[in-house]
Amino acid sequence: MDKSPLLEADRLNVSFHTPRGVVHAVRDVSFKMGREKLAIVGESGSGKTQAGRAILGLSDGRVSAKRLAFHGETLLGLDARAWRAIRGRRIAMVMQDPRYSLNPVMPVGEQLLEADRDRGSAKTARARALDMLASVRIRDPERVFRAWPHEMSGGMGQRVMIAMMLMAEPELLIADEPTSALDVTVRLQVLAILDNLVRTRDMGLIFISHDLNLVRTFCDRVLVMYAGQVLETLPAAELAAARHPYTQGLLACPPEIDHRRERLTVLRRDPQWLEPVAP
């Protein structure tokens, strides 16, 4: 049997060359993952999105790594043809904002079918697309199948994006803030769909989020990123006992329903956190 991890990143780096110098967006990020729900959390600008894009070869920056492998096969230096066999098929990504990731001049249904190319007849493909729309809790799949992206709300668009990614039955799904535009109840229902896929289809999920409370209850393991580095990695259930002051600070910031306070705790950033983390 295949003993290599689903995904392995060893010292992944992403940098951008700008007129004002080099911006090091991802610094020496290393992790291994299997069929699990792995969260990458951090604030805006922490590098979590750039790390996700780099894995899928979608980064606009300069990507380097000691090793970046999917099922033991390297993802570094693949040509366009090799990527086409992987991207969208074996590794898929759901982006944050459906307004920019759906094609505005193509009906939703056609876009879903595009994700399902060469998989049997047009009729079964259409039935599968309608199934997928229903599985992400779209009430009238027939209508949405014929709809244009601008006719849908943000929440609906996001569910279509997820349905599209599921059409290909990927082995690894990278979801970048897939639910932050959704209402709380719909958000949880969409997460339950992703949870099912991890359990029943053995899919791996990288869940990029800024919401520690959600990640704590939804994911298996958490990587905490700050300024491009992974500050700590820990099981989601043990997040409350996080050791790093940054993680503790982030957990203390949001107001709680069950425990009201006079004032909210403010994060005090320590310049030490920018120093390279010992491997």
């Binding site: 604030e43 982030l250 910031c253 949001p254 004032r263 403010v266």
Partner: peptide
């Protein structure tokens, strides 16, 4: 806003 910035603005 990020939660840390949210806390500052709400305060």
């Amino acid at each position: 806003l990020d939660v840390s910035i949210q806390a500052e603005v709400l305060n």
